[in-house]
């Protein structure tokens, strides 16, 4: 044993976080949020609850403050009023130390990936690990970085590449690998499919859905991509008039008579996205049947891991 665990300041544990007001159901609870830049009020009395384990899509016209909302939740922007509780802890009132205690329970994917340009992809993934868990050995960190890179669908060789050598889609995946470095419970994604070609975007959507299901994530997804909304979001929150005017599944939202929602979900692009979702669902059923017949290697693995 190289390091003495007693000397390391412990970060907050999941259980520890839950002691206050976190009931395990709503990792994010926003109430009465107000954000303003000078006289320009962005959010007024905004309320939103994010359920555990869901992918919540956040939509709204340009300038309705989707990114400001995300920045407020992750503590990059101090709101002018209201409360934001993440895992039961009020981010707006918390001091720097308390925010750090929550910070290792979330991962953020910024729009452009925001990778550190002087580090390789693998080193990017190791940055949060080194920051929060310095007791991990260098060897283990390398191993973690390697499998996280592959987990996000990149080829293993991408680990040693610099961000400038990657395409836009690969940068997003590398950014996702870094966001997932600490095995967070909460994932923030800011327009992850913007700028990707339709095939790349669909693959990225599927990746997010798969990771959410296997790793048990809760995802806060800002998007303009109607396909993403239909394909992977459990619920959708609509930002308009400085507030969240509606939250619900897409069929529920369709029943709303708010003009913006009607225009958004009944526009030609939205109808096309819905159709393609329906077609994809039919295809998946057919593929699933074929895949089940070919899953011999997976069965072998199951044999190796005998259940409890």
């Amino acid at each position: 044993m190289g390091s003495d665990p007693g000397n390391i300041v412990p970060p907050a544990d999941a259980e520890e976080l839950g002691t206050e007001r976190y009931d395990g159901k709503y990792p994010i609870v926003i109430d009465g949020l107000q954000n303003a830049f000078g006289d320009n009020v962005i959010h007024q009395d905004l309320a939103l609850k994010v359920r555990r384990g869901e992918i919540l899509g956040v939509v709204g016209g340009s300038g309705t403050g989707k990114s400001v909302l995300m920045r407020s939740i992750i503590g990059l922007q101090r709101p002018t009023g209201g409360t934001i509780e993440v895992f039961g802890r009020d981010i707006t009132a918390a001091g720097p130390d308390e925010v750090i205690g929550v910070r290792n329970h979330w991962g953020v994917l910024f729009q452009g990936g925001a990778l550190f340009s002087t580090l390789t992809v693998a080193e990017n993934v190791e940055v949060p690990l080194k920051q929060f868990y310095p007791e991990l050995s260098a060897e283990l960190m390398h191993e973690i970085a390697r499998y996280k890179v592959v987990l996000t669908g990149l080829p293993g060789e991408a680990a040693s590449k610099y961000p400038s050598e990657l395409s836009g889609g690969m940068k997003k995946r590398a950014g996702l690998a870094r966001a997932l470095a600490l095995d967070p419970e909460l994932l923030f994604l800011d327009e992850p499919t913007a700028g990707l070609d339709p095939i790349g975007a669909a693959n990225f959507d599927k990746l997010i859905r798969d990771l959410t299901d296997t790793l048990g994530l809760t995802v806060f997804l800002i998007t303009h991509d109607l396909d993403s909304l239909y394909a992977i979001c459990d619920r959708v929150a609509v930002l308009a008039d400085k507030q969240v005017i509606a939250v619900g599944t897409i069929p529920e939202l369709l029943e709303s008579d708010h003009p913006w929602i009607q225009e958004y979900f009944n526009g030609p692009r939205s109808r096309a996205a819905r159709d393609s979702r329906d077609r994809a669902a039919e295809l998946t059923v057919a593929e699933g049947d074929a895949a089940r017949e070919q899953s011999a290697p997976a069965a072998a693995l199951h044999g190796k891991i005998t259940g409890a």
Binding site: A122, R146, Y162, T214, L215
Partner: peptide, 21 residues
């Protein structure tokens, strides 16, 4: 949970370099 995660990491193993050679 453990079974699912074991499958995930097994599918993601790699021996690639961390830095360019």
């Amino acid at each position: 949970q453990a079974t699912r995660l074991l499958e995930v990491v097994q599918g993601a193993q790699s021996s690639a370099d961390i830095r360019p050679q």
